[in-house]
Amino acid sequence: MANPKADLLQGTLDLLILKSLQLEPMHGFGIAGRIGQLSKDMLTVEQGSLYPALYRLEEQGWIKAEWGVSDNNRKAKFYSLTATGRKQLVAEEHSWAKLSTAINLVLGNA
């Protein structure tokens, strides 16, 4: 499947997921939609990476899952940030900023 949109840099998916959960709890489909929406459809999240990533983050204790009812009245699993998850988000945002600055410097765009 050809993908004209930008590929996700490895390791950034975690950051995107954490960021999209910053405001409110969301289910998996919602997270994927939110990332697409925020990136103006430049980034799409493959489901094949999304769910393993969600389980991994849950495993690490950065997000937690609860069953709730979605907008269209269906049972869905909602993910929300935990306290450590918030800290992790701050840390990752910080390191991403540093990284992107560094890369821009190398590319001579700063």
Partner: peptide, 16 residues
């Protein structure tokens, strides 16, 4: 079962 259900939910939303 939770995982299966979650993924089914995802597909349903996508279908809609």
């Amino acid at each position: 079962t939770e995982m299966a259900e979650e993924m089914r939910h995802h597909v349903e939303l996508q279908t809609e």
